[in-house]
Computed example of a mutant assay.
Amino acid sequence: MTFDPTTFAPTHFLWEFADGVATITLNRPERKNPLTFDSYDELRDAFHALDKCRAVKAVVVTGAGGNFCSGGDVHEIIGPLTKMNERGLLDFTHMTGDLVRAMRSCPQPIVAAVEGVCAGAGAIIAMASDLRIAAPSAKTAFLFVRVGLSGADMGACAILPRIIGQGRAAELLFTGRNMTADEGFAWGFWNRLSENVLADAQSLGRELARGPSIAHAVTKKQLDAEWHVSIEQAIEMEARAQAHCMQTRDFHRAYEAFAAKRMPEFQGD
């Protein structure tokens, strides 16, 4: 079935689509936007659907009411988990990991727009995004250790050190403490700090949406893939990837625009 971003109406989060940018808003502001089993499931499915949706060029993820996401809902997730057998627990952890897989495998750049509380699974969603903008109020905590769990959750031990370094990631994952916005910016977790987080994130999303979407998808794929190979292999992978991009109509449009001294209008083909 074809995914239509103009008619998509999710049950467990808000969805807006304009100018090639899809905005996902976690929308339980009275609880600081915690996730439930159903919202995990629906978010994962939405990112999977975006894999084949050319109309969406970029994605913004944010939270309602001045907070991003407080993690898994204590009563609707944490409580039930204490009563599950090993099979049920593994089904759950596979599902949560699949959300990160879907975010990393969808071709669109994802921009996290974060203010207030960004904790647990919320911190993971920010981490799994490609770009991150935070308000000075943002407090980010990979707080799994505070509930007796390891920091090894949803790819955190693999992805977080790549963003902020091994030592800093180890500190956050072992202690579960809050990372301030200033720390996160200095460490490279946040790309920028802003007093107008959502507006700036959507502006960035529109900028990305105006770009060459095939090339953006290749960049996203290679940023992940090249962590696992030697530099020699990476150079060969990039040679093939760039040769593929050189066959796109967008590449030819860019040349023609340059020759005519005007800005290119990319169309994603």
Rank of each mutant, 00 (worst) to 15 (best):
residue 17 F to H: 12
residue 33 N to T: 02
residue 71 G to R: 09
residue 96 T to A: 11
residue 34 P to I: 00
residue 38 D to A: 14
residue 8 F to G: 02
residue 45 D to G: 02
residue 86 E to M: 05
residue 87 R to G: 11
residue 38 D to H: 13
residue 30 E to R: 10
residue 47 F to K: 02
residue 61 V to I: 10
residue 56 V to H: 11
residue 88 G to Y: 05
residue 84 M to F: 02
residue 53 C to N: 12
residue 41 D to G: 08
residue 58 A to N: 05
residue 55 A to R: 12
residue 52 K to M: 03
residue 88 G to A: 01
residue 63 G to H: 06
residue 86 E to A: 04
residue 90 L to M: 15
residue 100 V to T: 14
residue 10 P to G: 05
residue 15 W to S: 00
residue 16 E to N: 01
residue 37 F to W: 08
residue 64 A to P: 03
residue 10 P to K: 05
residue 17 F to P: 09
residue 11 T to L: 06
residue 7 T to M: 08
residue 41 D to A: 14
residue 84 M to I: 01
residue 61 V to D: 03
residue 80 P to D: 02
residue 56 V to I: 04
residue 37 F to G: 08
residue 87 R to C: 01
residue 46 A to I: 07
residue 58 A to H: 08
residue 82 T to W: 08
residue 13 F to T: 03
residue 80 P to W: 07
residue 5 P to M: 04
residue 17 F to W: 08
residue 103 M to C: 03
residue 3 F to Y: 07
residue 8 F to Q: 04
residue 26 L to C: 04
residue 24 I to K: 01
residue 85 N to R: 06
residue 24 I to G: 02
residue 87 R to K: 11
residue 53 C to M: 05
residue 12 H to Q: 09
residue 79 G to P: 04
residue 48 H to R: 15
residue 64 A to C: 03
residue 87 R to L: 11
residue 63 G to N: 09
residue 87 R to P: 00
residue 84 M to L: 10
residue 51 D to E: 15
residue 67 N to S: 15
residue 47 F to W: 06
residue 67 N to T: 04
residue 80 P to R: 08
residue 48 H to A: 04
residue 69 C to P: 08
residue 27 N to Y: 09
residue 76 E to L: 08
residue 97 G to C: 03
residue 52 K to L: 04
residue 8 F to W: 10
residue 35 L to A: 12
residue 38 D to W: 12
residue 44 R to Y: 12
residue 98 D to E: 13
residue 29 P to S: 05
residue 24 I to F: 04
residue 63 G to K: 03
residue 74 V to L: 15
residue 78 I to Y: 12
residue 99 L to C: 02
residue 41 D to E: 14
residue 96 T to N: 03
residue 26 L to Y: 03
residue 54 R to N: 06
residue 59 V to N: 09
residue 89 L to F: 07
residue 37 F to P: 07
residue 87 R to F: 13
residue 19 D to L: 12
residue 43 L to E: 00
residue 72 G to T: 05
residue 61 V to A: 01
residue 27 N to G: 01
residue 75 H to N: 15
residue 36 T to F: 12
residue 68 F to N: 00
residue 20 G to H: 08
residue 36 T to Y: 13
residue 32 K to V: 00
residue 37 F to E: 06
residue 15 W to G: 01
residue 79 G to Q: 09
residue 94 H to W: 05
residue 41 D to K: 15
residue 8 F to P: 01
residue 98 D to A: 15
residue 83 K to P: 00
residue 23 T to F: 05
residue 57 K to W: 03
residue 97 G to S: 13
residue 38 D to N: 14
